[in-house]
Amino acid sequence: MRNFNEVIRFARERGPKTISVACCQDKEVLIAVEMAREEGIANAILVGDIEKTKIIAEELQIDINNYELIHIEDTSEASRKSVELVSTNKADMVMKGLVDTSIILKAVLDKEIGLRTGNVLSHVAVFDVEGYDRLFFITDAAMNLAPDLNIKKQIIENSCTVAHALDIELPKVAAICAKEKVNPKMQDTVDAKHLEEMNERGEIKGCIVGGPFALDNAVSIEAANHKGINHPIAGKADIL
Results as ranks from 00 to 15, higher is better:
E130S: 12
E130F: 10
V21M: 05
N199D: 13
M143Q: 07
V86R: 04
L69A: 10
H123E: 14
A142Q: 07
Q61W: 07
H231F: 01
R2A: 06
A22D: 04
D148P: 02
V94I: 08
G131M: 07
G118C: 11
A192C: 12
I239C: 09
A107V: 06
A11Y: 04
A178C: 04
N199H: 13
A78L: 09
K152S: 07
D148T: 05
K81H: 15
A165H: 11
T189D: 10
D92Y: 12
A11P: 02
R12K: 14
I233V: 14
A78Q: 05
C24W: 01
A22I: 01
K152L: 12
M143V: 14
I208A: 07
E222A: 11
G235D: 04
I113D: 11
N43W: 03
L98P: 00
N65K: 14
I8T: 14
H71I: 05
E6Y: 07
I45H: 08
V126Y: 12
V129R: 03
N183L: 11
V190I: 08
M93H: 03
D167P: 00
A11D: 01
V86W: 03
N183Q: 07
A42C: 09
I239F: 05
L105F: 15
C177P: 06
K111T: 08
D191S: 09
T75H: 13
K17S: 03
V120L: 10
E200I: 15
R9W: 02
V83Y: 02
H194D: 09
A174S: 04
D167R: 01
N43A: 06
